[in-house]
Design a protein around this nucleic acid. Sequence first.
DNA 1: CCCATATTTAAGATTTTCTTAAGGAACCTG
DNA 2: CAGGTTCCTTAAGAAAATCTTAAATATGGG
Lengths: 229, 229
Amino acid sequence: MEQSTNILVVEDDNDINQLLCRMLTKSQYHPQPAYSGTEALLYLKQQDWDLVLLDLMLPGMAGEQVLTNIREKGSIPVMIISAKEEKQTKITSLRAGADDFITKPFDLDEVSARIDALLRRYKHTKETPSQLLTHKDIELHVEEKTVYVNDIHLTLTIREYKILLLLMTTPQKVFSKANVFESVWEEPFHGDDNTVNVHISNLRTKLGNANPEAEYIETIWGMGYRMKS
Amino acid sequence: MEQSTNILVVEDDNDINQLLCRMLTKSQYHPQPAYSGTEALLYLKQQDWDLVLLDLMLPGMAGEQVLTNIREKGSIPVMIISAKEEKQTKITSLRAGADDFITKPFDLDEVSARIDALLRRYKHTKETPSQLLTHKDIELHVEEKTVYVNDIHLTLTIREYKILLLLMTTPQKVFSKANVFESVWEEPFHGDDNTVNVHISNLRTKLGNANPEAEYIETIWGMGYRMKS
DNA sequence: CCCATATTTAAGATTTTCTTAAGGAACCTG
DNA sequence: CAGGTTCCTTAAGAAAATCTTAAATATGGG
């Protein structure tokens, strides 16, 4: 499954922005131009990005501020492209969270190679959630949110699906009821575990209906649940 | 738990090698100098490294070859430091797997900042291994809350598990009954130790059933319990 | 608004674990 | 050696944890 690489190009100089976007397109990436710091923020909110090319001198919001904002939110690679030749700016940016710093005028091939290097490392370490989880004869297709047991399609409710997904992401791990609640319901656990109990029971029933021979979810008394090996 | 950051510095020029090592030491890293490509390979085989600083013109084996070797083996960050100013060498290296390319003469502060940026990204994604406690032939997997003795899976109650976990975290230490009670029950000790006695007895029985030859828990009369060596 | 479905709450049943009591063994001291 | 203290083991009843099912409530779509 081929996923496109989306790169945000934040550069107020029209010609340079287009130059960079053309280079990126030629490398099979999907560039999105932005001409101000504030415009960049809107795009950053809108979707995930694989890399950001960031000028420092921008209208609306300075590049330094955008970098800070990006770093507060996550770990996307950021390459600074700037006319500011000062050594101190370079070092401040790198220490503030930038992954690379290129000064204008730049060599396009070098920029391209450095982008590739950055993406190589980012993509290598970026956790692509496994698209298919299996355990015994359970198949859980993450993208499609479908579950098969013994090649039989299960109709799970969203709660049931999320519980099974949680357990199957780390089949050896014991998830306490509080863990399960907080992960699936995304609220603080308030001490009453009966809702979790009921959903676990419902899930067990559905799994068992598909294959009565097997047991899939194991209770560790006093501790919680895990996938049964 | 603080882990040291080990950086291999591969540079045949003595002065430059020392300069880099001093800078790294000042940044609290642990540098290891190597003066040839072949020497670098020996160190790479010997242990894991967090980053490699690599010159290209080296005796014994060219830096390009060392880079190829590193990339075949794993994903350690590699920063090339080279006198070769040619644009083509820079791009070839970056595309061959280098993470960064600095030309000599370099600015030490910039090198330092780039090293920090590289390590920041590398350390951010490094996985922390799951915790395992062992004593004699007992294996206690903390995350999974499972216990094996002599490769036999033990079914422990939560009290038994917690007592064993407590004793195995510090196998030399004598834990008084009050210690055990307060740690496992998380209540103030009220003087009656019979509950602890019973659980210790039950735990001993389960351990002994798995391996009758060995003794695992030792009583120190008048003081408490510890793991038997 | 009505209906179907999902979720939560409630209640009773089942399973597991814990605590306490009692008898006996082991250890320590005078 | 005897007596007192500490510890160990076993069994039974109580308590806690968990499971299942049904009823009540919430949600979303037509």
